[in-house]
């Protein structure tokens, strides 16, 4: 089945089984390797992408869900203004450790900044509550997103 969607701002079309997991479409067909598979069950968030402006676990979504939709992956977000701001903040705090979960955190944080952006720790924790990190104890991740919210406020 032919399915069209917008991927990181480009129109794309793919002819594949509509049940193909979205993560496999991104990694194997489009070589977008920033989307990681940590568990394959939606339990870790390493595969988080934005689908129609909402963060979703791409390992439990299917190609058909992207039909006529808009997808933004970590690679795409990294090129946006808010994405760049977030990357600066994650870098500033030395938050990144192994980094496997971070493209997912970038996506969820980006969504938070886009839709709310209040420098409020409790809200940030909720927004990131589908993303697991085993290295950092989350403290530096919270610091980074708070910092990004504050900088966004100023600009």
């Amino acid at each position: 089945m032919k399915i069209k969607f917008i991927l990181n701002k480009n129109e794309v079309e793919i002819d594949a089984n509509p049940m193909t997991r979205l993560i496999d479409v991104l990694r194997e067909h489009f070589q977008l390797l920033g989307t990681k598979e940590g568990c394959g069950e939606g339990e870790c968030g390493a595969c988080t992408i934005l689908l129609n402006d909402k963060p979703v676990a791409s390992c439990i979504a299917n190609l058909i869900h992207a039909e006529n939709g808009v997808i933004l992956t970590a690679e795409g977000i990294a090129k946006t203004k808010i994405g760049t701001l977030l990357i600066d903040c994650f870098d500033e705090t030395n938050a990144v450790q192994c980094g496997f979960c971070f493209p997912g955190f970038l996506v969820s944080s980006y969504h938070y900044l886009k839709t709310d952006g209040e420098p409020n720790l409790e809200k940030i924790k909720i927004a990131l509550s589908g993303n697991i990190c085993r290295c950092t104890g989350y403290q530096k991740i919270f610091d980074s997103v708070l910092m990004a919210c504050e900088k966004l406020d100023l600009s």
Partner: peptide, 12 residues
């Protein structure tokens, strides 16, 4: 339902 599953599952 605010804490159903997680945000990245709530969207699906």
């Amino acid at each position: 339902l605010k804490f159903f599953a997680s945000p990245i599952i709530q969207n699906l």
